[in-house]
Computed example of a mutant assay.
Amino acid sequence: MSDETYLDLSDLTLAYGKTVAVESLNLSIRKGELIALLGPSGCGKTTTMRAITGLLRPASGKITLDGADITYVPANKRHVGLVFQSYALFPHLTVFENVAFGLRLKKLPTVEINQRVEAGLAMVGLGKFHSRKPAELSGGQQQRVALARSLVMEPKVLLLDEPLSNLDARLRLEMRTELQRVQRESGVTMVFVTHDQNEALALADRIVVMKEGAIEQVGSPEDVYNRPRSRFVADFVGFENIFAVKDGKIVTDNGAVDLAGASAVNAPGLAWRPHMVTLGEGRFQGEVLGAAFAGGSREYLLKSPLGPIKAEMDASAPAFEPGSTVAFDLPPERAAVLERM
């Protein structure tokens, strides 16, 4: 993977009429990277992808790919591939003809088309499926055909819109591995849009978390998962106990509360995942409102003076019954330190 910027979005503002969807976005992507645009519906991730493909004209800003300004280059001349959420396969064409479709539009020689299609289908593991129609394929196989169709066009960047959302859980796991393998073998730069944090964590080299048309955090999966910088990102990646910090105290609905060790935290917020909460001992007391067995663990919801607390313990530990009172603590050394609330 190159360290130099390959795809660059500079001060990019995107709008639908007078409604601004993305404002002054800056993002640099290296050649060969697999990038995830992650966020809830309406955060601007798909809009950003549409601008990269050329399907949406920027209101302002610049898009550079491989050293060339493509901001206003037509979509069909950008060397950017797109795999749709719906796959968009032609139902009346065979697998071979679906993959060959774009190549035929370019009027390439028949020999070259055959070679590229054969190589593309082999790369996605469908070398023996040339003559099948899309209706004869599973969802995962259809996704592979759509992927091959884009790869044979030899794009500089391949964009994928919620690529695994139409697959069941087992196929999603298989296709995650398949996408990583294809990306590694082809070396193509990939950008995929998703609202599924597990998908982004499993696939991406870097994750771009978006909120309301802006980038909230960019980092490796480990950084985003373990070291969220804002309340929004912490909540999005599963930190369910989030508190503001002021003058060394955590701020709750019932006022500020001293927390041993919090005085050393020079940040506006702290966040704990449920498993980071100490349960069964500690300075606080909570009433168990609910308990749920979750396989290897038990999940608890506590009513406490700090507000609702979500905790988790190993399933092998003694269970706490609903209605019982249990001691708990929020160890600051386990918490994620938030830069923004």
Rank of each mutant, 00 (worst) to 15 (best):
D3I: 05
Y6P: 01
D8C: 08
D8F: 04
D8H: 12
D11F: 01
T13F: 06
G17Y: 09
K18V: 03
T19N: 13
I35T: 12
I35S: 00
I35M: 12
G39L: 12
P40F: 02
P40H: 13
A51I: 06
R57N: 05
R57L: 12
I63N: 04
I63F: 09
T64F: 03
L65R: 07
T71S: 14
Y72V: 01
V73L: 15
P74Q: 07
H79D: 15
G81N: 13
L82Q: 09
L82S: 02
S86D: 15
Y87S: 07
P91G: 11
L93T: 06
N98Y: 13
N98F: 13
P109R: 10
N114Y: 01
Q115M: 08
Q115R: 15
E118C: 03
A122H: 13
V124W: 05
G125C: 11
L126N: 03
L126I: 06
K128H: 15
K133H: 15
Q143M: 10
M153C: 05
V157I: 13
E162P: 03
E162Y: 07
N166W: 02
L167P: 07
A169Q: 06
R172N: 05
L173G: 02
L173V: 14
M175Y: 11
M175V: 04
R176G: 08
E178P: 05
L179R: 05
Q180F: 00
Q180V: 00
E185S: 11
V188L: 04
T189F: 10
V191W: 07
H195G: 08
Q197V: 12
Q217M: 06
S220D: 01
S220R: 10
D223G: 01
D223F: 00
R229F: 00
S230Y: 04
F232E: 09
D235S: 15
V245Y: 00
K249W: 00
I250W: 01
I250L: 15
V251A: 06
D258H: 05
A264E: 15
N266A: 13
P268I: 08
L270A: 03
A271P: 02
R273T: 04
M276Q: 15
G280C: 10
E281K: 15
R283Y: 02
Q285I: 11
G286E: 10
E287D: 10
L289W: 00
A291Y: 00
G296H: 03
S297E: 13
E299Y: 02
L302W: 05
P305Y: 09
L306W: 10
L306T: 03
I309N: 05
K310I: 01
S316E: 14
P318E: 09
E321P: 01
L330N: 08
P331G: 02
R334M: 03
R340C: 01
